[in-house]
Design a protein around this nucleic acid. Structure first.
Length: 564
DNA sequence: GCCGTTTTCGGCCCGACTGTTTTCAGTCG
């Protein structure tokens, strides 16, 4: 599938068009729309291309089809290359600064020869741009650059939740209820801003008085934004009580989802904005107070926030074919947990007790195998001792069940720790790769494929090994890994650690569509981290997973049958 | 550049806020 590659090409063209001072701004829109359309395309774009049917794709016409044709045939696009030459150097980089859009970036690059964010900063500080920007704009741009250059990037889910919680309780201590929207409500793995909605007229000034506020970015009767001391921006929108549904819909996004909804409204002779769904002709309001009503009036079923990415949920909702997403309460056990026998912080017993308290009926301890020496990996002898302890606990905690598991290191040559006879004695084996991860992606893929083929391995843990904000996932061939897992009836994991969430939503969905079963695990290294399961479930929901796709929604007996 | 059971031309999602070009362009979500 090269769909996302082609979509990237079109988006790059759109961006360059914008920065090149292109006058027809709807041309830019057209390229963006075509990009989205291809990203969401079910069929393989190369297949469509071979059949000569590119122009039949929605929002792809003769012009864009030509560009795609050349790209797929020659691996390059002359149009893109021309644009790269035409765009003033630095304009694209300048657009990263909040407050600087394509027009300003173009003028700065052409008129002042500014080629980077750093040069922009120096130009403002030296007063060179005093006649271009007013004083307050200069200040706000310098603040934006500082934020950009600091190491604060997007937040992980727990941090965003914490901030939203703090804002929320501040408001409720003043008797005002707020609703959290935005990408936090959609459960994205990283969050930029915190978006909140209120129905109180006082909430804009109240937000400005929130103790953690550093500066007020803007403040009007219907909208206010503040920047907190930790650099996070909080955006507030104020609505009437009976507008809450359309308001939540609008402010939850995603942007692409909203655009798609508004286009459907237009097709049906209606108009959708944050204040409601209206009859286009009469202006009469059809729905607004609840999200369900708005979707309903558009002829759609209710779409859960996690699905609102314009990745096919619109069509599914129109055809009443949305999935019944997995819920945290569907999870009956945790299949990746570490104790203080390897690199965890807590005792087996305490971890198991907590798991039982959560309501699970089983847990697998998957302490590290011998060659993971940094993580205090266990020798065969130490595992035998651990199993004794597990046996005692199983007797004491009936009917709760503790499984003998291992996080088995896939070594640099693809071989695994321990003998076959020894591996046989585990209830569950999850294989993962930590060592020699700087090998070529092809080699890494080969190691994982070899592990999948090993009959003792049940699950591949955190398949790409990404650490959000610290390193990208390995560029392993996930298509091949998914195929191999499918053919060998093996399980792939969504690791619930907030900085992993690996597989991510896109690939977990792909695996599910290929018929591969998924395990959602906490990867807990302490009692508190057992709660990471929640983030795994959120990611699974974003991947369209239903309980039947997830192996640890099964009872322990069923599970043992499936993996034996 | 794309699209059309109101349109092959004239639209393109929609609205809030800011600044300072006092009527709107630019940017953002």
């Amino acid at each position: 599938m090269r769909n996302s590659e082609v979509a990237d090409l079109l988006e790059r063209i759109a961006l360059l068009l914008e920065a090149s001072g292109e006058e027809e701004r709807f041309k830019v829109v057209a390229y963006r729309r075509a990009a989205t359309s291809i990203r969401n395309l079910e069929e393989d774009i190369e297949e469509v291309w071979k059949k000569g049917k590119l122009a039949e794709i929605k929002y792809v016409g003769e012009g864009i089809a030509k560009k795609i044709d050349q790209y797929l045939r020659d691996g390059r696009s002359e149009y893109l290359e021309e644009l790269e030459k035409k765009v003033p150097k630095g304009a694209i980089e300048l657009m990263q600064v909040p407050g600087i859009g394509p027009k300003t970036a173009y003028k700065l690059a052409i008129g002042y020869g500014i080629k980077s964010v750093e040069e922009l900063k120096q130009a403002i500080e030296s007063g060179k741009l005093d006649d271009f920007f007013g004083e307050s704009v200069r200040r706000s741009i310098l603040a934006s650059i500082e934020k950009l250059q600091s190491y604060e990037k997007r937040m992980l889910l727990p941090e965003a939740e914490q901030i939203a919680e703090a804002v929320s309780s501040f408001f409720s201590s003043h008797g005002i209820r707020i609703f959290v929207a935005g990408s936090l409500r959609r459960g994205k793995s990283t969050i930029g801003d915190i978006d909140i909605i209120s129905t109180s007229k006082d909430s804009a000034s109240l937000l400005s008085s929130f103790p953690l506020v550093d500066s007020v970015v803007e403040s009007g009767p219907k909208r206010a934004s503040v920047r907190l001391k930790n650099g996070v921006q909080v955006d507030l929108r104020i609505f009437e009580e009976d507008e809450l549904g359309s308001a939540l819909l609008y402010f939850t996004g995603s942007k692409q989802h909203n655009i798609a909804l508004r286009n459907i409204a237009i097709e049906k002779g209606m108009k959708l904005n944050e204040y409601g769904l209206f009859n286009q002709k009469t202006g009469e309001r059809i729905a607004s107070s609840r999200e369900e009503e708005v979707y309903g009036a558009l002829g759609m079923s209710y779409i859960e926030p996690e699905l609102r990415e314009d990745r096919g949920e619109i069509e599914a909702a129109l055809n009443k074919k949305l999935p019944s997403l997995i819920k945290i309460s569907d999870v009956r056990g945790d299949l990746q947990v570490h104790s203080n026998w390897s690199d965890g912080a807590d005792e087996l017993e305490a971890m198991a007790e907590e798991a039982r308290k959560i309501g699970y009926s089983y847990i697998a301890f998957t302490d590290h195998s011998a060659s993971a020496s940094i993580a205090n990996g266990l020798t065969e002898e130490r595992f035998r001792k651990q199993w004794k302890k597990i046996e005692e606990l199983n007797d004491a905690m009936k009917p709760f069940k503790i499984l003998r598991g291992v996080e088995l290191e896939i070594r640099s040559d693809g071989s695994l720790d321990y003998s076959s006879e020894f591996l046989e004695q585990f209830d569950i084996v999850g294989a993962s790769l930590h060592q020699a991860y700087r090998q070529q992606p092809e080699k890494l893929t080969e190691r994982i494929l070899k592990a999948i083929k090993n009959r003792h391995v049940d699950i591949i843990f955190h398949p790409t090994n990404r650490l959000i904000g610290r390193r990208e996932g390995h560029e392993v061939d996930l298509e091949a890994i998914i195929r191999e897992a499918r053919d060998n009836n093996k399980i792939l994991e969504i690791d619930g650690q907030p900085n992993r969430l690996d597989l991510d939503d896109i690939w977990a969905k792909r695996a599910m569509e290929e018929g591969v079963k998924i395990a959602i695990d906490s990867d807990a290294h302490s009692i508190g981290e057992l709660g990471n399961m929640r983030y795994g479930v959120i990611t699974a929901r974003r991947a369209w997973l239903e309980p039947r796709h997830v192996i640890n929604t099964m009872s322990c007996e069923e599970l043992m049958k499936v993996i034996s």
